[in-house]
Design a binder for these strands. Sequence first.
DNA 1: TGCCAGGCCCTCTTTAGGGCCTT
Length: 208
Amino acid sequence: MSNISRADSLVILDFETTGLSPNMGDRAIEIGAVRLVNGEITERFQELMNPGQRVSAFIEDYTGISNDMLVEADSCEVVMARFADFMGDDNLIAHNASFDKRFLDSELERIGRYYNGEFSCSLLLSRRIFQDAHSHKLGELVRFANIESSGGFHRALYDSEMTAKVWMKMLEDIGERYGVFDIPFELIKKLAKAPKKDIDKLLLSYAG
DNA sequence: TGCCAGGCCCTCTTTAGGGCCTT
């Protein structure tokens, strides 16, 4: 898989986990991802994985993923090896990417796998592009952008698909408002880090 | 013993604090 450094060929991923911090012993329990090419979802990946520890009642309730389901799943090591093959060196997107990147790095390090893609964050971008949204939680952004939803949040594939749709809505919005339709990943990364006051200037510099 | 994330972002800021977002 070649590294295509453009915003129109991406892997959008989402982890469900035992908790918030791999540094505190938390592990992944599900990975979901879609590959987005030219604005279309071309591939999907979703697997549960057995973290080797019981998950809390909170996580069972929050995700709908039970300990019984995880006992039947392949180990994190086996599943993450398959996921590493899936994502290749594509650039990556996640909602609140700092969270998913910590788990991706932690789980891949355990199996000696690495990736060459770059990460960007739909949460950071939405705070700049959808500044009128009263919340930037994934579910709230789906409503804000009038994206059709069955409400199945907190499962990895569903959340990655919703993140992909929010992502495409933001790119559409940039096209409509600024006339910028061909957005390199380098610009995405700049946008996600730029002060809000600089967003107009940055995008207008790419227009025309 | 008791506690336990971490990065971003705003503001009553910068010698800091607290809310937002992810599970």
